[in-house]
Amino acid sequence: MSQNKFKLVECPRDAMQGLHDFVPTELKSGYLNLLLQVGFDTLDFGSFVSPKAIPQMADTAEVLAKLDLSNTKTKLLAIVANLRGVEAAIKHQEINYLGFPFSISETFQQRNTNSSIAQSLSTVEEMLSLCIKNNKEAVVYLSMGFGNPYGDEWNYEIVEQWADVLVSKGVKILSLADTVGVSTPEKIENILPRLISRFTHAEIGIHLHSTPDERFEKIEAAYRSGVKRIDSALKGFGGCPMAADDLTGNIATEDVIGFLNAKGEQLNLNMDKWNEAMVLSEKIFG
Protein backbone atom coordinates (compact mmCIF):
# COMPACT_ATOMS: atom_id res chain seq x y z
CA MET A 1 0.00 0.00 0.00
CA SER A 2 1.06 3.58 -0.49
CA GLN A 3 2.24 5.35 2.65
CA ASN A 4 -0.45 7.95 2.04
CA LYS A 5 -4.06 7.46 2.96
CA PHE A 6 -5.00 8.63 -0.53
CA LYS A 7 -3.91 7.01 -3.77
CA LEU A 8 -3.71 9.80 -6.30
CA VAL A 9 -3.66 8.59 -9.89
CA GLU A 10 -2.36 11.18 -12.34
CA CYS A 11 -3.73 10.59 -15.87
CA PRO A 12 -1.60 12.22 -18.59
CA ARG A 13 -2.75 9.49 -21.01
CA ASP A 14 -6.35 10.59 -20.59
CA ALA A 15 -5.30 14.23 -20.89
CA MET A 16 -3.36 13.72 -24.14
CA GLN A 17 -5.26 11.02 -26.00
CA GLY A 18 -7.77 13.30 -27.70
CA LEU A 19 -5.29 15.98 -28.81
CA HIS A 20 -5.44 16.64 -32.53
CA ASP A 21 -1.71 17.27 -33.07
CA PHE A 22 0.70 14.45 -32.32
CA VAL A 23 2.84 15.19 -29.27
CA PRO A 24 6.47 14.21 -30.04
CA THR A 25 7.70 11.17 -28.12
CA GLU A 26 10.55 13.15 -26.49
CA LEU A 27 8.13 15.77 -25.18
CA LYS A 28 5.71 13.14 -23.88
CA SER A 29 8.44 11.26 -22.04
CA GLY A 30 9.94 14.47 -20.64
CA TYR A 31 6.55 15.44 -19.24
CA LEU A 32 5.95 11.98 -17.78
CA ASN A 33 9.44 11.92 -16.22
CA LEU A 34 8.60 15.12 -14.33
CA LEU A 35 5.26 13.69 -13.18
CA LEU A 36 7.04 10.54 -11.99
CA GLN A 37 9.03 12.65 -9.54
CA VAL A 38 5.99 14.34 -7.96
CA GLY A 39 5.11 11.35 -5.81
CA PHE A 40 1.71 10.19 -7.11
CA ASP A 41 0.74 6.63 -6.31
CA THR A 42 0.14 5.76 -9.96
CA LEU A 43 0.71 7.31 -13.38
CA ASP A 44 -1.80 6.39 -16.10
CA PHE A 45 0.89 6.97 -18.73
CA GLY A 46 -0.22 5.38 -22.00
CA SER A 47 -2.31 2.78 -23.75
CA PHE A 48 -1.85 -0.27 -25.94
CA VAL A 49 -4.78 0.27 -28.27
CA SER A 50 -5.22 0.49 -32.02
CA PRO A 51 -3.28 3.49 -33.38
CA LYS A 52 -6.18 3.98 -35.80
CA ALA A 53 -8.54 4.47 -32.86
CA ILE A 54 -6.20 6.62 -30.72
CA PRO A 55 -3.31 7.88 -32.91
CA GLN A 56 -1.83 9.89 -30.01
CA MET A 57 -0.95 6.69 -28.13
CA ALA A 58 0.81 4.93 -31.04
CA ASP A 59 4.22 5.52 -29.40
CA THR A 60 3.42 4.19 -25.90
CA ALA A 61 6.15 1.51 -26.06
CA GLU A 62 8.73 4.09 -27.22
CA VAL A 63 7.67 6.50 -24.48
CA LEU A 64 7.96 3.73 -21.88
CA ALA A 65 11.54 3.02 -22.95
CA LYS A 66 12.44 6.67 -22.18
CA LEU A 67 10.98 6.77 -18.68
CA ASP A 68 13.37 7.02 -15.75
CA LEU A 69 12.01 4.78 -13.00
CA SER A 70 15.22 4.76 -10.95
CA ASN A 71 14.08 7.13 -8.19
CA THR A 72 10.31 7.04 -8.13
CA LYS A 73 7.81 5.00 -6.13
CA THR A 74 5.06 5.82 -8.63
CA LYS A 75 3.63 2.76 -10.38
CA LEU A 76 2.77 2.69 -14.07
CA LEU A 77 -0.68 1.95 -15.47
CA ALA A 78 -1.45 1.31 -19.14
CA ILE A 79 -4.92 1.13 -20.66
CA VAL A 80 -5.88 -1.82 -22.87
CA ALA A 81 -9.12 -2.40 -24.78
CA ASN A 82 -8.79 -5.99 -25.98
CA LEU A 83 -6.61 -9.09 -25.65
CA ARG A 84 -4.11 -7.88 -28.22
CA GLY A 85 -3.52 -4.86 -26.01
CA VAL A 86 -3.24 -7.02 -22.90
CA GLU A 87 -0.63 -9.21 -24.60
CA ALA A 88 1.36 -6.17 -25.74
CA ALA A 89 1.29 -4.53 -22.29
CA ILE A 90 2.24 -7.56 -20.19
CA LYS A 91 5.54 -7.91 -22.07
CA HIS A 92 6.76 -4.75 -20.33
CA GLN A 93 8.13 -5.50 -16.90
CA GLU A 94 7.98 -1.82 -15.89
CA ILE A 95 4.17 -1.72 -16.10
CA ASN A 96 2.42 -2.50 -12.80
CA TYR A 97 -1.24 -2.10 -13.73
CA LEU A 98 -3.38 -2.87 -16.76
CA GLY A 99 -6.55 -0.80 -16.94
CA PHE A 100 -9.64 -1.93 -18.85
CA PRO A 101 -12.69 0.26 -19.55
CA PHE A 102 -15.70 -1.97 -18.85
CA SER A 103 -18.79 -0.05 -19.87
CA ILE A 104 -22.11 -0.79 -18.25
CA SER A 105 -23.70 0.89 -21.29
CA GLU A 106 -23.89 -1.59 -24.18
CA THR A 107 -23.85 1.22 -26.76
CA PHE A 108 -20.69 2.76 -25.34
CA GLN A 109 -18.91 -0.58 -24.94
CA GLN A 110 -19.39 -1.12 -28.68
CA ARG A 111 -18.23 2.43 -29.49
CA ASN A 112 -15.25 2.36 -27.17
CA THR A 113 -13.87 -1.18 -27.53
CA ASN A 114 -15.79 -2.54 -30.52
CA SER A 115 -17.18 -5.38 -28.43
CA SER A 116 -20.29 -6.23 -26.44
CA ILE A 117 -20.49 -6.21 -22.65
CA ALA A 118 -20.51 -10.03 -22.71
CA GLN A 119 -17.34 -10.13 -24.87
CA SER A 120 -15.71 -7.54 -22.63
CA LEU A 121 -16.42 -9.66 -19.57
CA SER A 122 -14.58 -12.57 -21.15
CA THR A 123 -11.70 -10.19 -22.02
CA VAL A 124 -11.56 -9.16 -18.35
CA GLU A 125 -11.40 -12.83 -17.30
CA GLU A 126 -8.51 -13.48 -19.71
CA MET A 127 -6.79 -10.29 -18.56
CA LEU A 128 -7.06 -11.31 -14.90
CA SER A 129 -5.52 -14.68 -15.66
CA LEU A 130 -2.66 -13.13 -17.69
CA CYS A 131 -2.06 -10.49 -14.99
CA ILE A 132 -1.63 -13.21 -12.34
CA LYS A 133 0.86 -15.11 -14.55
CA ASN A 134 2.83 -11.95 -15.34
CA ASN A 135 2.87 -10.29 -11.94
CA LYS A 136 0.56 -7.42 -12.92
CA GLU A 137 -2.59 -6.11 -11.33
CA ALA A 138 -5.82 -5.36 -13.19
CA VAL A 139 -7.74 -2.11 -12.75
CA VAL A 140 -11.26 -2.21 -14.17
CA TYR A 141 -13.13 1.02 -14.84
CA LEU A 142 -16.90 0.85 -14.57
CA SER A 143 -17.33 3.22 -17.47
CA MET A 144 -20.59 5.17 -17.89
CA GLY A 145 -20.94 4.41 -14.18
CA PHE A 146 -23.17 7.44 -13.52
CA GLY A 147 -25.42 7.22 -16.56
CA ASN A 148 -25.05 7.52 -20.33
CA PRO A 149 -26.34 9.73 -23.15
CA TYR A 150 -27.65 6.83 -25.23
CA GLY A 151 -30.79 5.93 -23.32
CA ASP A 152 -29.32 2.61 -22.13
CA GLU A 153 -30.85 1.59 -18.80
CA TRP A 154 -28.94 2.88 -15.76
CA ASN A 155 -29.62 2.79 -12.03
CA TYR A 156 -27.71 2.20 -8.80
CA GLU A 157 -28.66 -1.48 -8.79
CA ILE A 158 -27.14 -2.02 -12.25
CA VAL A 159 -23.89 -0.41 -11.10
CA GLU A 160 -23.80 -2.56 -7.98
CA GLN A 161 -24.68 -5.70 -9.92
CA TRP A 162 -21.78 -5.22 -12.38
CA ALA A 163 -19.40 -4.36 -9.54
CA ASP A 164 -20.45 -7.63 -7.90
CA VAL A 165 -19.85 -9.62 -11.11
CA LEU A 166 -16.37 -8.11 -11.60
CA VAL A 167 -15.26 -8.48 -7.98
CA SER A 168 -16.47 -12.09 -7.95
CA LYS A 169 -14.30 -12.72 -11.05
CA GLY A 170 -11.26 -11.52 -9.08
CA VAL A 171 -11.05 -7.77 -9.81
CA LYS A 172 -9.37 -6.11 -6.82
CA ILE A 173 -9.33 -2.51 -8.04
CA LEU A 174 -12.54 -1.07 -9.41
CA SER A 175 -12.81 2.56 -10.46
CA LEU A 176 -16.22 4.11 -11.01
CA ALA A 177 -15.85 6.23 -14.14
CA ASP A 178 -17.99 9.13 -15.26
CA THR A 179 -17.15 9.15 -18.93
CA VAL A 180 -19.37 12.04 -20.01
CA GLY A 181 -19.64 14.23 -16.92
CA VAL A 182 -23.17 13.23 -15.86
CA SER A 183 -22.21 12.50 -12.25
CA THR A 184 -23.67 14.74 -9.57
CA PRO A 185 -22.76 15.04 -5.88
CA GLU A 186 -26.03 13.23 -5.07
CA LYS A 187 -25.22 10.28 -7.38
CA ILE A 188 -21.64 10.09 -6.07
CA GLU A 189 -22.81 10.06 -2.44
CA ASN A 190 -25.47 7.49 -3.22
CA ILE A 191 -23.40 4.89 -5.03
CA LEU A 192 -19.83 5.15 -3.70
CA PRO A 193 -20.53 4.38 -0.01
CA ARG A 194 -22.61 1.36 -1.12
CA LEU A 195 -19.71 -0.05 -3.13
CA ILE A 196 -17.07 0.76 -0.50
CA SER A 197 -19.04 -0.85 2.33
CA ARG A 198 -20.10 -3.89 0.31
CA PHE A 199 -16.80 -4.74 -1.40
CA THR A 200 -14.45 -4.45 1.54
CA HIS A 201 -11.74 -6.60 -0.09
CA ALA A 202 -11.62 -4.47 -3.24
CA GLU A 203 -10.19 -0.99 -3.69
CA ILE A 204 -12.93 1.29 -4.97
CA GLY A 205 -11.78 4.38 -6.84
CA ILE A 206 -13.32 7.19 -8.81
CA HIS A 207 -12.52 8.63 -12.23
CA LEU A 208 -14.67 11.71 -12.80
CA HIS A 209 -15.08 14.00 -15.77
CA SER A 210 -16.53 17.42 -15.14
CA THR A 211 -16.98 20.95 -16.36
CA PRO A 212 -14.66 23.33 -14.44
CA ASP A 213 -17.48 24.90 -12.40
CA GLU A 214 -18.68 21.55 -11.03
CA ARG A 215 -15.29 20.09 -10.09
CA PHE A 216 -15.13 21.07 -6.43
CA GLU A 217 -18.59 19.84 -5.49
CA LYS A 218 -17.77 16.46 -7.10
CA ILE A 219 -14.41 16.20 -5.31
CA GLU A 220 -16.12 17.07 -2.04
CA ALA A 221 -18.85 14.45 -2.59
CA ALA A 222 -16.23 11.77 -3.36
CA TYR A 223 -14.28 12.71 -0.23
CA ARG A 224 -17.39 12.58 1.93
CA SER A 225 -18.18 9.17 0.42
CA GLY A 226 -14.92 7.79 1.80
CA VAL A 227 -13.12 7.17 -1.46
CA LYS A 228 -9.33 6.80 -1.16
CA ARG A 229 -8.37 6.37 -4.82
CA ILE A 230 -8.87 9.41 -7.05
CA ASP A 231 -8.00 9.80 -10.75
CA SER A 232 -7.32 13.29 -12.09
CA ALA A 233 -5.22 15.13 -14.66
CA LEU A 234 -3.08 18.24 -14.46
CA LYS A 235 -5.21 21.33 -15.24
CA GLY A 236 -8.18 19.06 -15.99
CA PHE A 237 -7.06 18.43 -19.54
CA GLY A 238 -8.58 15.67 -21.61
CA GLY A 239 -11.66 13.56 -21.60
CA CYS A 240 -12.81 10.70 -23.75
CA PRO A 241 -12.41 11.13 -27.53
CA MET A 242 -15.02 8.41 -28.05
CA ALA A 243 -17.57 10.51 -26.16
CA ALA A 244 -16.36 13.97 -27.06
CA ASP A 245 -17.54 17.12 -25.34
CA ASP A 246 -15.12 20.05 -25.34
CA LEU A 247 -16.28 21.34 -21.95
CA THR A 248 -16.10 18.06 -20.09
CA GLY A 249 -12.53 17.27 -19.11
CA ASN A 250 -10.87 15.42 -16.27
CA ILE A 251 -10.98 16.62 -12.69
CA ALA A 252 -7.97 18.92 -12.28
CA THR A 253 -5.24 17.42 -10.08
CA GLU A 254 -4.40 20.80 -8.56
CA ASP A 255 -8.03 21.05 -7.37
CA VAL A 256 -7.77 17.60 -5.74
CA ILE A 257 -4.44 18.52 -4.11
CA GLY A 258 -5.80 21.87 -2.90
CA PHE A 259 -8.95 20.28 -1.50
CA LEU A 260 -7.11 17.48 0.33
CA ASN A 261 -4.48 19.89 1.68
CA ALA A 262 -7.28 22.09 3.04
CA LYS A 263 -8.67 19.01 4.83
CA GLY A 264 -5.27 18.47 6.46
CA GLU A 265 -4.49 15.29 4.53
CA GLN A 266 -0.78 14.40 4.20
CA LEU A 267 0.00 13.91 0.50
CA ASN A 268 3.84 13.97 0.55
CA LEU A 269 4.13 15.41 -2.95
CA ASN A 270 7.12 17.22 -4.44
CA MET A 271 5.43 20.49 -5.38
CA ASP A 272 8.55 21.88 -7.08
CA LYS A 273 8.42 19.04 -9.62
CA TRP A 274 4.67 19.55 -9.89
CA ASN A 275 5.17 23.23 -10.74
CA GLU A 276 7.78 22.28 -13.36
CA ALA A 277 5.26 19.87 -14.89
CA MET A 278 2.63 22.65 -14.91
CA VAL A 279 5.03 24.84 -16.90
CA LEU A 280 5.99 22.08 -19.34
CA SER A 281 2.33 21.19 -19.89
CA GLU A 282 1.94 24.46 -21.85
CA LYS A 283 4.12 22.98 -24.61
CA ILE A 284 1.82 19.97 -24.90
CA PHE A 285 -1.62 21.47 -24.37
CA GLY A 286 -0.95 25.05 -25.49
Rank of each mutant, 00 (worst) to 15 (best):
Y97L: 08
E126Y: 13
T25R: 11
A88Q: 13
G286I: 07
T123P: 05
P212Q: 11
A221W: 00
R229N: 09
M144W: 00
F6N: 03
K172R: 14
A61C: 08
Y31E: 07
E186V: 11
G226N: 03
L130Q: 10
K52E: 11
L83P: 07
G30H: 06
L280A: 12
W162S: 06
K263S: 09
H207R: 04
K73L: 13
L19H: 02
L36H: 02
V256F: 13
L142C: 06
M278L: 15
L195I: 07
A262M: 14
A202K: 02
G264C: 10
F216Y: 14
S122K: 13
L192R: 01
W154G: 03
K7R: 14
Y156F: 14
K52I: 11
V38Y: 01
N268K: 14
I104E: 00
L142S: 00
E126T: 14
Q119I: 09
L77V: 08
P51H: 12
I219T: 02
N250H: 07
F40A: 08
V80G: 07
I219C: 05
A243M: 05
Q3W: 12
L98N: 04
F6D: 02
K263Y: 06
K66F: 10
I196E: 02
K52F: 14
N261A: 14
N270D: 15
E94P: 01
K169S: 11
Q119Y: 08
I79W: 09
P101V: 03
L142T: 05
L128R: 00
